[in-house]
Design a protein around this nucleic acid. Structure first.
Lengths: 158, 158
DNA sequence: CTCGATGCAAAATTTTTGCAGTCCC
DNA sequence: GGGACTGCAAAAATTTTGCATCGAG
């Protein structure tokens, strides 16, 4: 689709730089590489995936820096953490979707589908309000099996 | 409420033994201690909590045995895993509640509330069906903060 | 220049596993 | 008595951290 190394929209790149400077943090090559890598990853990715991708842009990026950058990226709202109950965490770029997303997680082939579930916003707030608590986040996940039938790959390709 | 070490209903104890023998597994003192401990834990517990409790009943119980027993306990349906997005897993005895449960998780004081959410059964099955996948589990969680106001403890005591 | 950021390797955390000895059936 | 089970300690796997050095502002 393009021949350049980085196909992250200029605008997002600027947003990230603004975020860093507004927090008094420095704009480093490593942070930019990690950020770009996060946005070139197709779907969901792990810290290790991100390290691999970022190193393709800047091979000086270390694992520690990736782990130190991830909280910054989530705090900036540019990526979000997607905990699917595995031993390691997944992340995804916040490309679009401002409504609440549920995940359908296929155990057989490690596929994660994001599904719009706007009514959940209401559900969580209602439940928490009844208990007198402040809602800070919600998670709605359906765990499935495709029995390696390949149906997940088909749907994902759709 | 009682003076004996173990206050697990005789009936449940028998269920666990039956489960073990039906699978061709052996009934050992360690497994019984772990099982009893799981049912004497008030709310949700971690593997480490379970180890501590089990050791009060039988101090020969080792960490490895707890970790090896947990899959058996969940497979038997007597306890269930409750993944709340922390680095370690929580478990809870399946004392009652046959309907789907959602969790309200207070980040400030590590409290987990179980809430009946029967309609979720329908939601998950519908979504997965549309994708042609088989549902094997669901997770609905609301993450909250009580700002250490003590409201969680009050609700829990209710 | 200065102090935040980085890479490296060691540490921390939770869970798993290999092995020699134990004890249930 | 045989083989499943156990405890121990080492290993795995992911994430965090200390420290000397580097480099952005």
């Amino acid at each position: 689709m393009d021949a350049t190394k980085v196909d992250v929209p200029e605008e997002l790149d600027e947003n990230f730089k603004k975020f860093l400077t507004s927090k008094g943090l420095r704009v480093t090559n490593q942070r930019l590489a990690i950020f770009s890598a996060a946005f070139t990853c197709e779907n969901h990715f792990t810290a290790e995936d991100l390290l691999d991708s970022a190193r393709k842009l800047d091979d000086s990026v270390s694992r520690a820096t990736v782990y130190r950058a991830l909280p910054l990226l989530t705090q900036s709202g540019l990526i979000r953490e997607v905990d699917v109950g595995k031993d390691y965490k997944y992340y995804a770029a916040n490309k679009d979707a401002k409504t609440f997303q549920a995940q359908v997680i296929c155990e057989d082939c490690d596929t994660i589908f994001e599904i719009d579930a706007p009514f959940m916003e209401w559900y969580g707030k209602t439940v928490a309000e009844k208990l007198g608590l402040t809602t800070v986040g919600q998670r709605l996940q359906v765990i499935t099996k495709c029995h390696k039938s390949g149906s997940c790959k088909n749907i994902a390709a759709k």
